[in-house]
Amino acid sequence: MVNEEHIVQQAVNGNQWAFTQLYDIYFDRIYRYIYVRVKKQAEAEDLTQEVFIKALKAIGSYKIGKTPFSAWLFRIAHNQVIDHVRKYARNLETSLDDAPPTVGSEDPVTITEQRFEVAELNAAMMELPAAQQEVISLRFVADLPIAEVAKILGKSEGTVKALQFNGTVSLRKLLAGRI
């Protein structure tokens, strides 16, 4: 199995196949992260594509070894989300109709239940302060290590740990009975 660093190196050198591999590896995670942040399917789709177009345009300037590729890519996504929210700030309350396609079943009842779970998560996340939302999204949704989260957000690991802890405590209360 080819390791990711090698693929990234090839992509930096202009290898299209390599970049497509990275695209395949990260596409779902980037989409998931963006969706949880913006909570709208159409916007999440647009932003996800923009992230990869920006990454394509900037891959030549990526410096291997300085920052993990995942942190670099999620930093693009993070900035896209921040810009989007800043420009189109509004009440982002969602309903089941806004829920994205979910996996696991074609049974309408199961799909509805899954959408309800996602909608509950969205609602709970919206109750958190912005900094906690960012950390929880990157840590538990994007599944990034704490060091990368700290780099993406430009915060110390200690700060991220505290935000993660407090955010989880709040989510526990908000999702009480559903965990």
Binding site: F27, D28, Y31, R32, Y35, V36, A44, E45, T48, P100, P101, T102, V103, G104, Q114, E117, V118, E120, L121, I136, R139, F140, V141, D143, T168, L171, R172, L175, R178, I179
Partner: peptide, 14 residues
Amino acid sequence: TSLNVNWRASMVQP
């Protein structure tokens, strides 16, 4: 709680 958040988020797919 952290696993539950991760589980719910994993349902979101493009």
